[in-house]
Amino acid sequence: MKPFTFDQIPVMMNKIHDKLEYLEKLILRISNVEENKEELLNIQEASKLLNLSVSTVYSKVCKREIPVNKQGKRIYFYRHELMKWIKSGRVKTYFEIQNDIEKRSKI
Protein backbone atom coordinates (compact mmCIF):
# COMPACT_ATOMS: atom_id res chain seq x y z
CA MET A 1 0.00 0.00 0.00
CA LYS A 2 1.40 3.40 -1.00
CA PRO A 3 1.50 6.27 1.43
CA PHE A 4 -1.07 8.93 0.67
CA THR A 5 -0.99 12.68 1.04
CA PHE A 6 -2.99 14.89 3.34
CA ASP A 7 -5.18 15.97 0.41
CA GLN A 8 -6.11 12.35 -0.30
CA ILE A 9 -7.43 11.73 3.23
CA PRO A 10 -11.08 12.63 2.42
CA VAL A 11 -11.07 10.30 -0.58
CA MET A 12 -9.49 7.49 1.45
CA MET A 13 -11.97 7.99 4.30
CA ASN A 14 -14.84 7.79 1.83
CA LYS A 15 -13.46 4.50 0.44
CA ILE A 16 -13.05 3.12 3.96
CA HIS A 17 -16.59 4.15 4.80
CA ASP A 18 -17.98 2.43 1.67
CA LYS A 19 -16.08 -0.76 2.45
CA LEU A 20 -17.32 -0.77 6.04
CA GLU A 21 -20.92 -0.37 4.87
CA TYR A 22 -20.46 -3.26 2.45
CA LEU A 23 -19.02 -5.47 5.22
CA GLU A 24 -21.86 -4.50 7.54
CA LYS A 25 -24.43 -5.57 4.93
CA LEU A 26 -22.63 -8.88 4.40
CA ILE A 27 -22.57 -9.60 8.13
CA LEU A 28 -26.29 -8.82 8.42
CA ARG A 29 -27.07 -11.07 5.47
CA ILE A 30 -25.05 -13.93 6.99
CA SER A 31 -26.73 -13.51 10.38
CA ASN A 32 -30.17 -13.59 8.70
CA VAL A 33 -29.26 -16.86 6.98
CA GLU A 34 -28.16 -18.34 10.32
CA GLU A 35 -31.43 -17.24 11.95
CA ASN A 36 -33.45 -18.83 9.13
CA LYS A 37 -31.61 -22.12 9.63
CA GLU A 38 -33.22 -22.54 13.03
CA GLU A 39 -36.61 -21.25 11.96
CA LEU A 40 -39.32 -23.60 13.15
CA LEU A 41 -42.43 -24.06 10.99
CA ASN A 42 -45.85 -25.50 11.79
CA ILE A 43 -47.76 -27.73 9.37
CA GLN A 44 -49.47 -24.83 7.58
CA GLU A 45 -46.19 -22.93 7.09
CA ALA A 46 -44.43 -26.07 5.89
CA SER A 47 -47.28 -26.76 3.48
CA LYS A 48 -46.99 -23.23 2.08
CA LEU A 49 -43.18 -23.47 1.78
CA LEU A 50 -43.38 -26.82 -0.04
CA ASN A 51 -46.38 -25.77 -2.13
CA LEU A 52 -48.22 -28.91 -1.02
CA SER A 53 -51.59 -29.30 0.65
CA VAL A 54 -51.65 -29.86 4.41
CA SER A 55 -53.06 -33.37 3.89
CA THR A 56 -50.20 -34.23 1.50
CA VAL A 57 -47.65 -33.06 4.09
CA TYR A 58 -49.39 -35.19 6.76
CA SER A 59 -49.26 -38.13 4.36
CA LYS A 60 -45.53 -37.67 3.79
CA VAL A 61 -44.98 -37.43 7.55
CA CYS A 62 -46.85 -40.72 8.12
CA LYS A 63 -44.78 -42.42 5.42
CA ARG A 64 -41.59 -40.93 6.93
CA GLU A 65 -40.74 -39.31 3.60
CA ILE A 66 -40.14 -35.85 5.03
CA PRO A 67 -38.01 -34.62 7.98
CA VAL A 68 -40.24 -33.79 10.93
CA ASN A 69 -40.03 -33.11 14.67
CA LYS A 70 -42.84 -34.23 16.93
CA GLN A 71 -43.62 -32.81 20.36
CA GLY A 72 -46.70 -34.36 21.89
CA LYS A 73 -49.49 -34.21 19.31
CA ARG A 74 -47.90 -31.36 17.38
CA ILE A 75 -45.44 -31.63 14.52
CA TYR A 76 -42.84 -29.05 13.56
CA PHE A 77 -40.42 -28.62 10.70
CA TYR A 78 -37.10 -26.83 10.45
CA ARG A 79 -36.93 -24.66 7.33
CA HIS A 80 -33.32 -25.69 6.56
CA GLU A 81 -34.22 -29.40 6.83
CA LEU A 82 -37.11 -28.96 4.39
CA MET A 83 -34.89 -27.06 1.95
CA LYS A 84 -32.26 -29.79 2.21
CA TRP A 85 -34.95 -32.43 1.59
CA ILE A 86 -36.13 -30.56 -1.52
CA LYS A 87 -32.56 -30.25 -2.83
CA SER A 88 -31.93 -33.96 -2.26
CA GLY A 89 -34.48 -34.74 -4.98
CA ARG A 90 -32.58 -32.80 -7.62
CA VAL A 91 -32.16 -34.67 -10.89
CA LYS A 92 -28.74 -34.36 -12.50
CA THR A 93 -28.41 -33.05 -16.03
CA TYR A 94 -26.94 -35.14 -18.81
CA PHE A 95 -23.77 -33.02 -18.68
CA GLU A 96 -23.36 -33.60 -14.90
CA ILE A 97 -23.80 -37.36 -15.31
CA GLN A 98 -21.26 -37.41 -18.12
CA ASN A 99 -18.75 -35.46 -15.96
CA ASP A 100 -19.27 -37.91 -13.07
CA ILE A 101 -18.59 -40.85 -15.38
CA GLU A 102 -15.41 -39.21 -16.69
CA LYS A 103 -14.16 -38.47 -13.17
CA ARG A 104 -14.76 -42.07 -12.06
CA SER A 105 -13.03 -43.51 -15.10
CA LYS A 106 -9.89 -41.46 -14.30
CA ILE A 107 -9.59 -43.03 -10.86
Rank of each mutant, 00 (worst) to 15 (best):
K2V: 03
K2T: 06
P3K: 07
P3M: 08
P3N: 10
P3H: 04
T5S: 14
T5I: 04
T5Y: 06
F6I: 14
F6M: 14
D7C: 00
D7K: 09
Q8F: 01
P10G: 08
P10N: 11
V11N: 12
M12L: 06
M12T: 05
M13W: 02
M13L: 14
M13S: 05
M13P: 01
N14I: 00
K15C: 05
H17V: 06
H17E: 14
D18N: 11
K19Y: 12
L20C: 14
E21W: 02
E21L: 11
E21K: 12
E21M: 03
Y22G: 05
L23M: 08
E24I: 03
K25W: 00
K25I: 00
L26Q: 07
L26W: 01
I27Q: 07
L28H: 14
R29W: 07
S31F: 02
S31E: 13
N32P: 03
V33R: 10
V33F: 10
E34D: 11
E34V: 06
E34L: 11
E35K: 15
E35R: 15
K37T: 03
E38I: 04
E38P: 00
E39M: 15
L40Y: 06
N42V: 00
N42D: 15
I43Y: 10
Q44W: 03
E45M: 02
S47H: 05
S47V: 06
S47I: 04
K48I: 14
K48S: 13
K48C: 04
K48W: 02
L50S: 06
L50H: 04
N51W: 00
L52N: 01
S53W: 07
V54D: 08
V54I: 14
V54M: 04
S59P: 00
K60V: 01
V61M: 00
C62E: 15
C62H: 09
C62Q: 04
R64E: 07
I66K: 12
I66Q: 03
I66L: 05
P67R: 06
P67N: 04
V68F: 09
V68E: 05
V68N: 06
N69V: 04
K70Y: 02
G72H: 03
G72D: 05
G72C: 02
G72L: 02
R74M: 10
R79C: 11
R79G: 14
H80E: 02
H80K: 08
L82K: 01
L82N: 02
M83S: 07
W85D: 07
I86S: 09
I86N: 04
K87E: 12
S88I: 00
V91Y: 05
K92L: 12
K92V: 09
K92E: 05
Y94E: 15
E96R: 08
E96N: 03
Q98P: 00
N99V: 07
N99E: 13
D100A: 04
I101K: 13
K103R: 14
K103L: 12
K103P: 08
K103Y: 12
R104L: 14
R104G: 06
R104F: 15
S105Q: 13
K106P: 02
K106I: 14
